[in-house]
Each structure stands twice: as C-alpha cells, then as structure tokens.
C-alpha cells in the first residue's frame, strides 16, 4: 500500500516536473508574446497541479495535504487573473499579436 502511494505520488511529481519543463521550453521557443502566454500557462496549470498533487500523495492524510490543496487553489485562482491583466495591458499598450496568414478575427453570430 505504501509502495503504491509512493509510486503514484512520485509519478505525479515527475509528470508535473516534465510539464513545468515543457512550459519553460515553450516560453523560450514560441515566437511572440501572446503565444508565450500559452507556454507559461502549461507550467501554471498542469505543472503546478501535478507537482502539488504528487506532494499531497506523499504527505498522506494530514494538515500538510490541506495546506498543499489551499496553495494549489490559490495558484489556480490568481494565475488567470495575473495572465489576463498582463495580456490586457499588452493589448492596450498597442502590442499587436502575430496571427496566422494575416486572418481577420472570427466571431460567433
């Protein structure tokens, strides 16, 4: 049983670390600011989520687990707010996103 918990927790932790790393690579590789936001989004959502979930498994049922859950909730509440504030100020400052094939904005009827 302990072994199972360790394996699941460790697996989550490693997957989370991998996603964090992929997000970092995206931050470097993607071509312009608006696309880089999506790269940072990977680390903020699944990277943080999996790492903290892995730690929760390792901690077992204790106050530590609840604290980890609260940190995760807090991160998931604040990260879209910060991201939107950032993207919106970039847009208002006049930074133009680079779009595919110079297409016009599509919209729902």
């Amino acid at each position: 049983m302990d072994l199972l918990v360790d394996v699941v927790g460790g697996g989550l932790l490693l997957f989370g670390a991998a996603f964090a790393l992929i997000g970092g690579i995206g931050l470097i590789r993607l071509p312009d600011f608006y696309t880089r936001i999506h790269g940072a989004g990977i680390t903020d959502t699944l990277g943080a989520g999996l790492i903290l979930s892995g730690l929760m498994f390792e901690a077992g049922v204790s106050i530590v687990t609840i604290k980890l859950l609260l940190i995760l909730l807090f991160l998931w509440l604040t990260s879209p707010t910060a991201t939107h504030a950032l993207a919106n100020s970039a847009l208002e400052t006049g930074l133009k996103p680079r779009l595919a094939d110079g297409e016009e904005a599509a919209s729902t009827p």
Partner: peptide, 20 residues
C-alpha cells in the same frame, strides 16, 4: 499545447476570436 511546443516545426496558427 505541450505536444505543439515539443513538435520540431511548432505547428501554431495563432488567431483572435470574439465570443459572446
């Protein structure tokens, strides 16, 4: 997104859309 980032050619096609 992770697959796109790791893809050698990075097949992105960024666009703006408006929704109600």
């Amino acid at each position: 997104v992770a697959r796109i980032v790791l893809h050698p050619r990075m097949p992105i096609s960024p666009r703006l859309i408006e929704v109600r």
